[in-house]
Design a binder for these strands. Structure first.
Length: 424
RNA sequence: GUGGGCGUAGCUCAGUUGGAUAGAGCAUCGGGUUGUGGUCCCGAGGGUCGGGGGUUCGAAUCCCCUCGCUCACCCCA
């Protein structure tokens, strides 16, 4: 019987696993370099953890199931609610600021397509307890560091930064009704994704007054912070939001990553819990969906039953980054292979081979030998296929002399060595 | 949820207007006379042509249904 794998779930063959480990290692390295510590939680959470705050319609996109006691459980779609729960449970004892990162296996019940599977790994970074822009800058700096770590530069990827407070202020400045806001945000979000005509069409359909539409057109044309119109700046609320963005960019310059970052009024992000700066890392060609995304969510922890605490962070999945790195030929080399391959020159010397193997393994050397006991030629080929750096050839001499032949596979040089020298 | 594309060996694909035991390259395994790898040569295994039904003397090929994959839209924490 041939059993089909579950849609959107992933098999990791050795080469896939090699890439996954390579990537995770770099995420961990960058996180720790910035002083973040790793945490994790369960992959299964009560369904309500996700539906209570976001409404029941979110269940459409959740991978959920009923257990034997008819409890409704969700495979986690993201880590942040778990994080909020964990922080709330230990709040009094946690030293602030809390700097946690996590690499979680997440699930979403979605229609699969390029860069979107039902199972993925998400790197999640959160910095809790700091209200100032310095915390946002710290997170963005870490995201940039991770990009460097995997071999990408500012010509490959860019951090596009906006602020929810600016968006909110602009909406109020234009006098746009509350019920139009989702539509307006949708148009802003489409700015770089659809052609200008289509954007104009969307604007026309949005049911806005002429003045509001003109204002929005002007805003959509902003490319830099300096482009922000004096008419908008005259509003104190807008002015304050812009000042905050300036402060953030000044810090990013101090972090030495100004060339990686730019203002983008089109960054909205869907998640309702963002309250301040929001940002996404995109490939410069704009071919792929966001690689990382994050922002400030100062109300989430209080809303989740804990003490209200300022917080910001970001997340990003292995899928998009994997596609990008694959396209740029930046995929990982295979797992570091076997160091030593112990070969026997004569058929009957398995006990001697095992003696050498045990010796090397006891010295923590990655060692293998031919389990199918072929001739020496075959063993040499196996050793080469396994990527062994050295082949140890055991002859009948070994029983008497305790000496073996050590062959360096890259140079082809051979020499006789005593067993004690091996693997030292 | 809507729409497009595609299903032939583990992978990438050929397969002529429907015609005989369905092919190639790569990969895998074995061999090239019992002591040295990455090259080369020879050979083998592996496919109910996604599945079911229909048309036909005859279907990988034509028709219908179905399953799966994929891409875009929607959504996107």
């Amino acid at each position: 019987m041939k059993v089909q794998p579950v849609r959107g779930m992933r098999d990791f063959y050795p080469e896939d696993m090699a890439f996954r480990n390579w990537l995770f290692e770099r995420w961990r390295r960058a996180s720790r370099r910035a002083g973040f510590v790793e945490v994790d939680g369960p992959e299964l959470e009560p369904l309500e953890l996700y539906t209570e705050k976001s409404g029941p319609e979110i269940a459409e996109q959740l991978y959920w199931l009923e257990d034997k006691s008819r409890r409704r459980l969700a495979l986690r779609p993201e880590f942040t609610p778990t994080l909020a729960r964990m922080i709330a449970a230990r709040q009094a004892a946690l030293p602030e600021p809390i700097r946690w990162f996590n690499i979680s296996r997440c699930f979403r019940y979605e229609r699969t397509q390029k860069g979107r599977l039902r199972e993925f790994f998400q790197w999640n970074v959160d910095l809790v307890g700091i209200a100032g822009e310095i915390a946002d800058a710290e997170c963005i700096s870490l995201a940039v560091d991770a990009m460097k770590e995997v071999g990408l530069g500012p010509e490959d990827v860019q951090v596009r930064i906006n602020d929810r407070r600016l968006l909110a202020a602009l909406v109020r400045h234009l006098g746009i009704a509350e019920d139009r806001v989702p539509q307006v945000f949708g148009i802003l979000d489409k700015r770089d994704k659809v052609p200008a005509e289509a954007l104009a069409g969307l604007l026309a359909e949005a049911g806005l007054e002429a003045q509001q539409r003109q204002g929005l057109e002007r805003i959509l044309a902003w490319q830099h912070l300096e482009d922000i119109d004096a008419r908008e700046l005259a509003t104190p609320e807008v002015h304050a939001a812009v000042e905050a963005i300036h402060r953030l960019f000044a810090l990013l310059a101090d972090y030495g990553i100004a060339e990686w970052c730019r203002f983008d009024i089109g960054i909205v992000r869907g998640l309702a819990y963002y309250t301040g700066p929001v940002w996404e890392v995109h490939d410069c060609k704009g071919e792929l969906r966001a690689i990382f995304g994050g922002g400030r969510y100062d109300r989430l922890l209080g809303d989740t039953g804990g003490k209200a605490m300022p917080a910001c962070g970001f997340g990003g999945s292995d899928v998009i980054l994997g596609i990008l790195l694959g396209e740029r030929g930046l995929r990982a080399e295979p797992e570091t292979s076997t160091e030593y391959f112990v070969a026997s020159a004569s058929e009957a010397s398995l006990p001697q081979v095992l003696q050498v193997v045990r010796h090397l393994r006891a010295r923590n050397r990655s060692t293998q030998f031919d389990l199918k006991s072929g001739n020496l030629k075959r063993q040499m080929k196996k050793a080469a296929d396994a990527g062994a750096r050295f082949v140890v050839i055991v002859t009948e001499e070994f029983a008497r002399s305790r000496r073996v032949t050590l062959r360096d596979m890259s140079s082809g040089d051979q020499r006789d060595v005593g067993l004690e020298e091996l693997g030292a």
